[in-house]
Amino acid sequence: MVVNIRKLPDKPYIMPGNAACPGCPETMGLRYVKMALGDNVVLVIPAGCSSVIQGIAPRSGINFPILNIVFAAAASAASGMKAAFEQQGKDVHVVVWAGDGGTGDIGFQALSGAAERDEDIIYICVDNEAYMNTGIQRSSLTPYGAWTTTTWTGKKEHKKNVPAILISHGVKYVATASVGYPADFIEKLQRASKIRGFRYIHLLAPCPIGWRFDPGLTAKVAQLAVQTGLFPLYEYINGVFRLSPIARRYKDPKKRVPVTEYLKLQGRYKHLLNKPEEIRKIEEYIENTWRLIEALEKTFTEEGGRGEQVFRAL
């Protein structure tokens, strides 16, 4: 399946009056969601940047039906909505749009519950790697070394690998995506939309305010995260794992962009650019990440090309 972005619907999904910051990756991502899935979508949004981006009621700057819900309950509210639509005989995509806190921290219990129950929803974690809405506090998905307003000398722990945890739940579909690669994200959304059951997409969303970079560079930073090998793009469908085509070349460490190219664009890493031992820790994290990717590839790729068949069928 190849996505031609120009042929996708592009109504005014994100409208004037929305309250997003300049260079916001969330509005980019939201637009891609509707380009991929069309109008038969209801969003469930827990507390986070996207609760604010909608703008001021009774109007909304985002042209979606949205149920806003308390921080820890997005996956549960979405489960209930989906059940209601099913009871009414309606086939609607119920999509959770939650931040890294609403996904990996405060919302994690509800997420894990919904995943285990194999609820027929699409859960998108829009990961800007900190609690940006409240003013850039660290989350469990903030990467090692990053400055936040609660980690002034840099976070001491590595990023929690939520998509890998979701694969361990045995759900039907898990993918990683980046706002720097819209066609890839849209393709994944479309593939996910054809599957029944719990689907999880982890969307990397670099935040100019929280990461301290020029708001014109959001897509660039989102691409560099992939090109440095920090954030591999992949899909897992029903027991079959594969690296996404645009990310395959970064399996080879020699083809990766040096991580400092990524770090030096972002003020949140300013304090460690002159500390080789800190950079080394981040490079080690990349190596470990790819070790896990290789293990997943090995574990979830069947002989005889079944993997490609699964993907081509969707």
């Binding site: 609760s51 604010v52 909608q54 703008g55 001021i56 039906p65 806003n68």
Partner: peptide, 12 residues
């Protein structure tokens, strides 16, 4: 809240 009604509940 549904695709037909296109309503938002709970924003600021």
């Amino acid at each position: 809240i549904s695709p037909e009604t296109n309503l938002v509940m709970g924003n600021i």
